[in-house]
Amino acid sequence: MAWLVLLVSGVLETVWVASLSRSEGFSRFVPSLVFVVALGLSMVGLAYALREIPVGTGYAVWVGIGAVGTVLYGMAVLGEPVTVMRLLCLGAVVGGVAGLKFLH
């Protein structure tokens, strides 16, 4: 269960980062509200998961999911460049995160 909660918390990290970008410096209410809620839920989920998962592994997986999700969001929604090198780097992050999960 802790791994599932960690996965959802990582996805929520992507949500809060995207909302932060959309909030335009907290000048837009709805994206600012989504940011606060997603950030809170993401942190609560991370805290819950870290009761069973070692902190180094849990944090690295959480950040990795959030980082990959945020880059994919940027490429899919914001028109950021999709290049072979960016995709290879994302693959390296995913491989590292998967490795930490399976070595746990």
Rank of each mutant, 00 (worst) to 15 (best):
L33F: 07
C89F: 15
L7F: 11
V93R: 08
G56K: 10
G95R: 11
S42W: 05
E52A: 15
Y73A: 08
M75F: 01
G25L: 08
Y59S: 02
L87H: 02
V94Q: 00
L4I: 12
S42D: 11
G40M: 10
L7Q: 02
L33N: 10
G58Q: 08
W62I: 10
I53K: 00
G79T: 14
L87K: 12
V68F: 09
T83E: 04
S19P: 11
A67T: 08
L6T: 10
G10V: 14
W62P: 10
P81H: 07
F29W: 05
W16A: 06
G99E: 11
R28S: 14
A38V: 06
L88I: 11
V93T: 07
G91C: 03
V8W: 03
W3H: 05
F26T: 03
V15Q: 03
T83M: 03
V97Q: 01
G58R: 04
L39G: 01
F26S: 12
A60F: 04
L6W: 02
G91P: 13
V5R: 01
G64M: 05
L90P: 05
L100H: 03
W62A: 04
Y73W: 06
P54A: 05
V97W: 00
S27C: 01
K101Q: 13
A98C: 05
F26H: 10
C89H: 04
A76D: 03
G25T: 13
V63K: 06
F35L: 14
G56N: 07
A18T: 00
W16N: 14
T83A: 06
C89V: 15
A60L: 11
S21W: 14
G45P: 06
L87F: 06
L50R: 14
V55I: 07
K101H: 03
T57Q: 04
E13M: 09
A47W: 09
A67E: 01
R51Q: 14
I65H: 03
L4S: 14
M85T: 13
G10H: 13
S27I: 08
W3K: 00
A98E: 09
M85L: 14
E52R: 15
G74I: 02
G79H: 08
L41C: 14
F29P: 04
L46Q: 04
V55W: 03
M85F: 02
V11N: 10
Y59K: 07
V8P: 02
V94C: 01
L12I: 12
V11Y: 13
G66C: 14
G69Q: 08
V93Q: 05
T83I: 03
R22F: 02
V44R: 12
P31K: 07
Y73P: 13
V84P: 08
G69R: 03
S23C: 14
R86V: 09
R86E: 07
V94W: 02
A67S: 12
A67W: 02
G64I: 14
